[in-house]
Design a protein around this nucleic acid. Sequence first.
DNA 1: GTGGTCTAGACCACT
DNA 2: GTGGTCTAGACCACG
Lengths: 124, 124, 124, 124
Amino acid sequence: MYTLDYSNKDPIYQQIVDQTKSAILKGYYKDKDQMPSVRELAKTLLVNTSTVSRAYSELEKMGIVQTIAGKGTFILFDPKIIKWEKEKILEKLEEVFKECLLLDISKDDIIKVLEKIEEEVVKK
Amino acid sequence: MYTLDYSNKDPIYQQIVDQTKSAILKGYYKDKDQMPSVRELAKTLLVNTSTVSRAYSELEKMGIVQTIAGKGTFILFDPKIIKWEKEKILEKLEEVFKECLLLDISKDDIIKVLEKIEEEVVKK
Amino acid sequence: MYTLDYSNKDPIYQQIVDQTKSAILKGYYKDKDQMPSVRELAKTLLVNTSTVSRAYSELEKMGIVQTIAGKGTFILFDPKIIKWEKEKILEKLEEVFKECLLLDISKDDIIKVLEKIEEEVVKK
Amino acid sequence: MYTLDYSNKDPIYQQIVDQTKSAILKGYYKDKDQMPSVRELAKTLLVNTSTVSRAYSELEKMGIVQTIAGKGTFILFDPKIIKWEKEKILEKLEEVFKECLLLDISKDDIIKVLEKIEEEVVKK
DNA sequence: GTGGTCTAGACCACT
DNA sequence: GTGGTCTAGACCACG
C-alpha cells in the first residue's frame, strides 16, 4: 500500500503523509478505521519509528487522523479535507497553466493531455 | 527582476536559477547578454556572493550561461532549453491532472481554470 | 585512500570527486556501500566540511552516489559510469596520440610505453 | 592561425602559448621569425593586450621567444623545446594508458585508436 | 547522528 | 574589474 522512494526529493515522512491522504481519497481507508501502529508500519516500511511518528503527527495536525492514547490512531474523515485538497490543487493548476502558456504550449495541447489522462484514469 | 522568498522551501540559489531561466524565456535576457556580476547581484539581492556564485555555476552546468574568466557571465541561449522546459512542464501537467481527477474535479472545471489563466496572460 | 594535492590546479572538491570515482572503478567502493560522512571525511582530509559536501553533491548530480537525508551518502554503482569514463578516456587518447605524432614520436615508441605500463599494471 | 575557445577550461593566454608552440613544431614559425606585436595580435584575436602580453611573457620564460626592447618579439628555436615537449607528452601518455587499463580497455583497442589517428595525420 | 544552505571574509587566477 | 575556491562557523531538516 505504501511505496517509498528514497530518490524522491520529498522526505520519507512526507511520502507517508501524502500516500495516507491519497488512500483516504481513494476509499482504502474509511472514517474511524484504525491505522497500523507506529511500530508496525515502521517495521513494514523498514524505516525509523520516529519517521512514522512524524508522519502521524503531521496527519493529526491536519485533522485527518486522531490519536487516542493507549488505543491507537484512527482515521477521522472530514469532508473538509476534500475541500482543502481541491483548493490546493487548483492553485497548483493555475501555476502550471501559467508556465505552459509562457512556453507557448497552446490551450488545445493542454486539453489533449487532459483527455489522455482522463482516459487512463477511467480505465483503471 | 528577482524576488527572493525566504519562506520558500527552495533554497535561494535555486530561486535565482529558476528566475533567471524564466527571465530568458520571457525575453528579458537575450542571447549573449551579460548577466549582472556576482558581486553586483549579491549586493542587489542582499545575499552572499557565494550564493549568487553557486546559482551562476548551476546555470553554467545546465548550459544556459557561459562564464568567461575575468570577463563575466553571459547568456547562452539555446533553443534546446525550451524543449527541456516543455518536457518538464508536460510531465508536471500530467501529475496535476491525475490529482484533479482523483479529487473529482471535472474536466470542465479544469478547462474553466485554464481559460481564466489564458485571459490573464493575454491581457499582459 | 584519498590524497590531496594542494599544488594541483584541480580544486580540492574535484580531486575528491575524481578519487571517489577511481575508488569505485578499482572496486574499493561497492554498490550500496556507505561513504564516510561529510564531517568524518572532512576531518580525515583536514578540509572544510563544505568542501567535502560539495564533492558529494557533484557525485550525486552525476548519479554516482545517492544521499538520503538523515542517513548518509551511498554508492550507487551504475555500469553507465564505465561507459562514460571509457568515452572520455578514448577522446583523451586521441588528443595525446595527435600530439605524439606531431612531435615525431613513432608508433613503435608509443607501443613500447604502452607495453611498459601494461606490465606495471599486471604486476599489481 | 590562432583559434580561441572561450568554452575551453584553459585560459586564453594559455591557448595562445600552446598554439604558438604548436605552430613552431609544425614549422609555421621558424627560428628568428618575428612574432606579431602584442597590440596587433590582440586586435586580431579580439582580446585584451594584457592577455597577449601574458602569453608572450610565458613563452619568454620558457625560452621559446625573445623580446628585444624596441624591436619586437622573435622566435628562438631551440631543439631542446622538442625534447621537453616529448618528455611531457610521454608522461601524459603513461597516465592515460594507466587509466585505460584500469577501465579494461585492451592493448589492442588502444592500438586501433593509435592507427586511426596515424592515418588521419598522414592524410593531412 | 546525517547532509544542505547560507554568511562573512579571505585568497587566487584571469582579463 | 571578473568568477572560483576555501574556511570557520552557524542554522535547519531529516531519521
